[in-house]
Nucleic acid binder design. Structure first.
Length: 219
DNA sequence: GCGACAG
DNA sequence: ATCTTGTCGC
């Protein structure tokens, strides 16, 4: 798929913060997605040293969840890992990988937060705005927000709140296992996002899309 | 000032 | 994220 990549990337946290404040205004928080036939998972890994970022994308049919397309790309790492700025470290390589896809996904599940971010522009929102694809943030741990106790059964969830607003949800994707932190990325609502995450997670804690892209990214 | 902090 | 074997519990 064709992608319009940014001309340059920020060199400082100050520049990155300014970009986040600008792009956050372009995030669409309501459902605006087509019939989902293909769901993709994206993830990044750091092979060898730390100077290389390897991104992987796995496209699965929906709702069958069969692997239909995949891509891997490598880029020199241009940004350190700083909580709140993860996207600037991973997105360059992710865009390269997405560009190689033959099948354009209808929905993208990202490894990390979406709206549940200090400035409301986690990697899922950032990637959604840059590609204009509907996206969901699926994180394995919390960045911000608070929530009430969560029942141990699969499917239970609680709102994740920050500064007086619901920024996502904590979802039990599997009984008696640590929950997932779900937040919208772009062009989708939280209820719809939770539904898709559950339908992409039939057996394990993580969505099949994430499991496959994880495996590809760290190889 | 102190603690928290996606991957 | 990454370095890494066996072990506990559903």
């Amino acid at each position: 798929m064709k992608i319009e990549k940014p001309q340059s990337w920020p060199q400082t946290v100050e520049e990155a913060k300014a970009i986040q404040e600008e792009l956050r205004r372009q995030v669409i928080r309501e459902d605006d997605l087509p019939t989902v036939r293909y769901v993709a998972g994206v993830d990044a890994g750091y092979p060898e040293q730390n100077n290389l970022t390897q991104a992987a994308v796995a496209v699965l049919s929906f709702p069958e969840l069969q692997l239909c397309d995949q891509a891997i790309a490598r880029c020199p790492t241009h940004f350190p890992y700083i909580p709140g700025f993860l996207s600037f470290r991973e997105i360059p390589a992710v865009l390269e990988a997405l560009e190689q896809l033959t099948i354009v996904p209808d929905l993208l599940l990202c490894d990390g937060q979406g709206l549940a971010h200090p400035r409301r522009l986690g990697i899922a929102c950032h990637l959604g705005v840059l590609t204009n694809l509907p996206t969901i943030g699926v994180a394995k741990s919390r960045l911000i927000g608070t929530h009430d106790a969560l029942p141990p059964e699969r499917g239970s969830w609680q709102p994740l709140r920050d500064r007086g607003e619901t920024v996502g949800a904590v979802l039990r994707s599997r009984s008696h296992v640590n929950p997932l932190y779900i937040s919208i990325g772009h062009r989708i609502s939280l209820p719809t996002a939770l539904d898709y995450v559950m339908r992409c997670t039939p057996k394990y804690r993580l969505p099949e899309t994430t499991r496959i892209s994880d495996r590809l990214a760290s190889s």
